[in-house]
Design a protein around this nucleic acid. Structure first.
Lengths: 230, 230
DNA sequence: ACCTGAACACCGTTCAAGT
DNA sequence: ACCTGAACACCGTTCAAGT
């Protein structure tokens, strides 16, 4: 008649899975050791037996996200038999794939920013990016500069400039126009042109792709310039 | 014989100035209410009489930084009598000016990322940027996309991808080469080309300007394309 | 081997009280 | 009007102790 606990045993895996679910549900601020322990139906200190500290949990979360990216883009290895000329589209679709994953975990970009050394999966992701550019015929030097230029966009995100949208026009419109005439004129124009975009007046996905394309085009032009002088 | 306190009276101004000095000296993590009070030679709770909460202090720090930027770039207004063709160089020098200020306050970018609504000076800075692009003949629509594309680079920073540098090759080189062959090859090549750059193997300033120029060139090309179809 | 309870050294902040 | 002391509700984490 052993009416034993139905709780499955604690493990690094289970802690990280639960942490990810908690972050998705309640946000990263709500992910405290005590809240996580509650969710695991355990005391807070039990977690320390399986993971050394909270830092390790956050690192583990980032790696979990990269594991999802690996599935989403069908592996980190560059596509086999990639036409050199197709490198921008190949990289583009890979980055947009990573972005789809990040949109499912809104807390992830913020975490990726503040982490220290990248994990194994992050390194392999970056390696695939380099591989694609290499297959496109870019020099190592240009690839290196290109990685810096693309920056976090490589992983599918850019830091939000104004937190959210629509919070932009502060208070009185007339006051705002006096403070920032050029900005006010632009906003009036853009809102008029596209009155029903996603949330406020700018569609994150569109803007993301615009910036990405600007950079990919620029890099492709530098590659062509390099090739013509060599 | 009034041997009174030599301490100057507390004020919003003095709190913010001291907070900035403390952040510069010890970093943002060390800026706690208690540490700030210590530096002000006062009890922690006294601060709350002059500022509502810590959030307000952080907002005040960002505004102080923008005040420095205003001085550095000689005012937020677009240069008078700007030749339309010169808009990229005008914007470029303004952004590099903002960057010089941010390099003096390494904690500022991180803070600017996590703040909510932008302050008055931040808005006026952005307004100047829009004004320059407008003087260059870009449409409001293109300017809007351009602002998103340039992103935080507009203010003179990009989020660091790998925290610092040189922390990149993790452990054993042979192991790293097996994990990330393309990346390893690139690193080997780039290190060889430029053995003594600033700290590790990449110069932040060079990379910043490369990415910025890529974007400015791309926007100028779009402007020209717009103009030719209109 | 795995989990727990009590405690520590921190946070930001409230609130009643001092001068 | 301006500053303070004690306390509250949180953090992450240590450490000795339970089973």
């Amino acid at each position: 008649m052993a009416r034993t606990a139905t709780r499955s045993p604690l493990s690094r895996e289970r802690v990280l899975q639960t942490a990810l679910r908690l972050a998705d549900r309640d946000g990263l601020d709500a992910l405290t050791m005590r809240a996580l322990a509650d969710e695991l139906d355990v005391e807070a200190m039990s977690i320390y037996y399986h993971l050394p500290n909270k830092h390790a949990i956050l690192d583990g979360l980032v790696e979990q996200v990269f594991a999802e990216v690996e599935v989403e883009i069908g592996g980190f290895a560059p596509p086999t038999e990639l036409d050199a000329a197709d490198w921008p589209t190949a990289l583009r679709s890979r980055i947009l794939g990573a972005r789809r994953v990040l949109l499912r975990h809104p807390w992830a970009p913020n975490l990726m920013n503040t982490r220290g050394a990248p994990g194994v999966l992050a390194v392999r992701y970056a390696d695939g990016v380099v591989g694609i550019m290499r297959a496109g015929g870019l020099s190592h030097d240009l690839i290196h500069h290109g990685l810096h230029a693309i920056g976090s966009r490589m992983y599918g995100y850019v830091q939000e400039l104004n937190d959210d949208n629509s919070a932009d026009p502060p208070g009185d419109p007339a006051e705002f126009a006096a403070l920032a005439p050029h900005l006010a004129a632009m906003l009036a124009d853009v809102v008029h042109d596209d009155p029903d975009s996603t949330l406020g007046w700018c569609d994150d996905q569109t803007e993301f792709e615009f910036g990405l394309d600007l950079l990919l085009e620029g890099l492709e032009r530098r590659r062509a310039a390099e090739a013509s002088t060599a």
